[in-house]
């Protein structure tokens, strides 16, 4: 019934779709928190591609890379949210357009 074998192409297609959704969200939303979430979506798409390739090549390097991407994503979220809190404390209800000059 479900004799379909899922090759790496399926995972890469899904990864591309997820990346495109994240990129579109990053472009059209103006709330900085939602934009960070869209960055997370794009990172997850890259992780999925890494693991799909790692399985296809039978190499553990893909999974190791995903581990490092996870750490970098966590650090990025921490710093980004600290910046958002600092900006929002100064000017409440700010959108991403209000901080275009990189001044607090």
């Amino acid at each position: 019934m479900f004799a379909l074998t899922i090759g790496p192409g399926y995972y890469l297609a899904l990864s591309a779709m997820l990346f495109i959704i994240g990129a579109i969200g990053l472009l059209i939303r103006r709330n900085p928190l939602i934009m960070f979430m869209c960055i997370e979506l794009m990172l997850n798409a890259a992780n999925l591609a890494f693991i799909a390739f790692g399985k296809e090549m039978d190499d553990l390097g893909g999974q190791i890379s995903v581990l490092f991407v996870l750490v970098v994503a966590a650090a990025e979220v921490v710093i980004g949210l600290a910046i958002v809190v600092a900006v929002m404390r100064r000017r409440p209800k700010a959108t991403i357009d209000d901080v275009s000059v990189l001044r607090g």
Binding site: Y11, L33, F36, M37, E40, N44, N47, I51, A52, G54, K55, Q63, V66, L67, L70, A73, A74, V77, V78, L81
Partner: peptide, 22 residues
């Protein structure tokens, strides 16, 4: 994709830490 450890890490770190931070 048989990346069992990373699946657990994904749930713990992302869903358990990063989203809670958000």
């Amino acid at each position: 994709l048989q990346a069992y450890f990373l699946a657990a890490v994904q749930v713990i770190v992302y869903a358990g830490a990063i989203v809670i931070l958000f």
